[in-house]
Design a protein around this nucleic acid. Structure first.
Lengths: 199, 199
DNA sequence: ACCTGAACACCGTTCAAGT
DNA sequence: ACCTGAACACCGTTCAAGT
């Protein structure tokens, strides 16, 4: 808006912002270096002055996304399990809205430092539910894996057949928030149950 | 062995068997149609007389793998949670041994009919633990998503730092069976706890 | 010294030319 | 009629030639 389509000086952040818009609106499959370069009005080779390779660009995107993970402060009336559910459902919705996120975070071997705050917050909620420090860490990882599985699963094994008898063929497979909540609440309950059993 | 390197008549099953060997030994990244064709001593185009596209080949591989999922019959002394754990740990090990499986099954939009027996068996174990029919189905899906998350997660968020203080840098990230068991046992416990709360 | 067009080494897929 | 070499339309990445 400030300068029309005057081409900005090429920079790492300009590359990231264009890449992110493409990933959000058209999916990660459309995110090619050629496309990014074209939208920035430059050649493909020029990108390599600012990023080492495509994988690094994806890592930067993932880290940015992780840094913006929602953090849900529990309202004082919330029982611990409800606070945990609220936090993780927010993460679920956030990652559904940025559907490339789960794939990139799971696939990458980078450590997403941007996620540190959410990890801390999630562990704190588990500690507030009575878990030990180590159990809270393991519990966090278990919940994360459950979330990841729900997000990455695209195939209909125990396919959802709702009470009307329809198998929904609209929007091939948007992950189902209520199904995730069902599993989330049960895993949370289980974490509270087996406190003693360390290791 | 029967006919040396005499080229077999090209067939769907010959393609699948070569493809599977490549995936098992060198990973799915090395599984290219060019490679398969070369190993069969034919041209790439010829493959298209037997499969429609690469995605179909992957679906066939996934279905074959699913049909060979281990089924662990519970020994009579097993408490239901132990029977459930034994079944799912076997699936975990099986999918770790065929590391491309989780990715292909999760990514594909095909319905893996080969998995029907395991799904049935898993549901039966959950029913034996006292779950209703619908809870057993939902419980199966929850366990599947937990397994998938453990298998597909390749990045170190709450990175494992064992008691020796070493962060293992051998074999970048083989999923950890004991960590999965920890989560599995807790989710199972949770499934048993919240029976009443339908939908 | 810094940038980048053109080339390289790969894909999956198609098609026209071979038998 | 059936098969397939060669081409096509893409990738990510590199490098030599431009300024």
């Amino acid at each position: 808006m400030t300068s029309g389509n005057t081409r900005q000086a090429l920079s790492r952040s300009a590359i990231i912002s264009v890449a992110r818009r493409i990933a959000d609106t058209e999916g990660i499959g459309e995110l090619t270096l050629r496309r990014v370069a074209a939208e920035l009005g430059t050649g493909q080779a020029s990108l390599y002055r600012h990023i080492q390779h495509r994988a690094e660009l994806l890592a930067l995107l993932a880290d940015e996304l992780a840094a913006e993970f929602p953090i849900v402060e529990p309202s004082s009336s919330d029982a611990p399990p409800d606070a945990i559910a609220a936090q993780w459902l927010a993460m679920f919705d956030y990652l559904v809205a940025h559907s490339w996120g789960a794939q990139v975070i799971a696939g990458g071997h980078h450590l997403a430092t941007g996620a540190v705050p959410v990890v801390g917050h999630s562990q704190a909620l588990l500690r507030a539910a009575g878990l030990s420090e180590t159990d809270a860490l393991h519990g966090y990882r278990a919940l994360w894996h459950l979330l990841l599985g729900h997000l990455l699963n695209a195939h209909p094994l125990g396919h959802h057949r709702d009470t009307t008898g329809n198998t929904s063929d609209t929007a091939v497979s948007t992950p189902d928030s209520s199904e995730f909540e069902w599993a989330l609440r049960r895993l949370t309950a289980g974490l509270g149950t087996m406190n003693a059993w360390h290791r």
